[in-house]
Amino acid sequence: MHAPILEPALLYHALNLLAPFATDDGSGDGGFTGPSLSEFVPPGFLFVDTPFEINRIMMVRFIAVAVLILLFWLGTRRMRMIPGRGQSLLEMAVGFVQSNIADGALGKEEGKRFMPLLATMFFMVIAMNITGIVPGLNIAGTAVIGVPLVLAVVAYVVFIYAGIKKQGMNFFKASLFPAGVPWPLYLIVTPIEFVSTFILRPVTLALRLLMNMIAGHMLLVLCFSATQFFLFTAGGLFGLFSIGTLAFGFIFTIFELLVAVLQAYVFTFLTAVYIQLALVEEH
């Protein structure tokens, strides 16, 4: 079962198991209160009611970008022929993107051309995904539509740019009117190609990343808030349930780390694949 299906399903069953302890009225009378989508729209604390309002999720994004820049600066400020530990780790990470994504999807020549974009996208996504399991941050910077949408738009623009630069306006003709199709079938094929190529690709890129991060956050909040409830509120023998929920919390934390890396890889690799499709003469 794929992660986008597995995580919401696990969340649904877990919520059903804890439903007898939940309170629906929000009265704070000692009942269990599960996670809600309100966590993804936190109140602002800087520049409130202005276009530059800063809330908790925006601050998490700033922190992720700052840490990423700092790591690359520290790892590359003293480049050597015989690399040190930090330089070696960065070279391995960049080499992974180059060999497994850029060169793997686009070939060496085109892969080198688009490598800066793909590497930036990969490390940005992975940095913002990992904040979801960092104590004190506890939410992914990609768990709100803004960042996934911007990255999907960038991928979409580069896809269109690569196609036009390679084929000119014939790019749209080749995309919407595939060769070898009897012309009456274009009445069916062309609308399908338009929707799948120019609408669904950026939408699915953004939603795949967004929903994985939302589901992961909800699962972790559910496990750890249930642990707190059973341990400090329910009392008695119910306290034993905290052992299980805490264990699941740690298991899902490790799982979320894997998902964070996997989603960064999938997002970047699909971007490279879409660029490659724009570069071929017929698709």
Rank of each mutant, 00 (worst) to 15 (best):
A3G: 02
G163A: 06
G244N: 05
Y12N: 10
L200S: 04
T268Q: 01
I199R: 01
M81W: 12
G30T: 11
I164Q: 02
L106V: 07
A143L: 07
N129P: 04
M213T: 10
F21L: 13
A66Y: 05
L220F: 07
I130R: 02
G244W: 08
A105C: 14
H2Q: 11
F47I: 02
R61H: 06
P42A: 03
I139L: 13
S88L: 13
G136K: 06
P42N: 06
V134L: 12
A215P: 01
V41I: 13
I139A: 07
G163T: 11
G216M: 09
Q98G: 04
I254Q: 01
I275V: 10
F198L: 03
I214K: 00
V65Y: 00
I188W: 12
M169E: 07
F232V: 08
M211C: 11
P51D: 03
S242H: 03
L205N: 00
F21N: 01
L207A: 09
R113N: 09
S38C: 04
L237T: 12
V41W: 10
Q167A: 09
A278P: 04
I243L: 06
I275N: 00
Y156E: 05
L237R: 03
Y12I: 13
F232N: 09
I5H: 07
M79A: 15
I57R: 02
I5R: 10
V221Q: 13
L10I: 15
V195Q: 00
L46Y: 07
T204Y: 00
A105N: 05
L220R: 14
L70N: 02
F241G: 00
L118N: 01
I275L: 11
T120V: 13
G95K: 09
I160Q: 03
Q167C: 05
I101Y: 02
P135T: 12
A143M: 05
L237C: 04
R80C: 10
L262Y: 14
L200F: 06
I139R: 09
A247D: 05
E53R: 08
G249E: 10
G107K: 06
F171D: 00
I133S: 00
M92E: 09
H13N: 07
M92Y: 10
F40C: 03
R56L: 11
F40A: 02
Y274Q: 08
F114Q: 04
F171M: 04
K173G: 12
A174T: 14
L219N: 04
L74Y: 11
N55E: 09
A260R: 00
L187F: 14
L68T: 11
S242M: 05
Y186H: 07
R208A: 13
L11I: 12
A179K: 15
M213G: 01
G34V: 12
F122H: 01
I126W: 10
F224N: 07
L207Y: 06
I243V: 15
L246K: 05
E39T: 13
T190H: 04
H13T: 15
S99W: 12
G111W: 06
A66M: 12
L210F: 08
S88E: 09
A143Q: 02
A22D: 06
K166I: 09
A155H: 03
A105V: 08
S175E: 11
L257G: 15
I192C: 02
L118T: 06
T76L: 15
P178E: 07
I5Q: 10
A22M: 15
A152L: 08
R85A: 13
T23D: 11
P20A: 06
L270I: 11
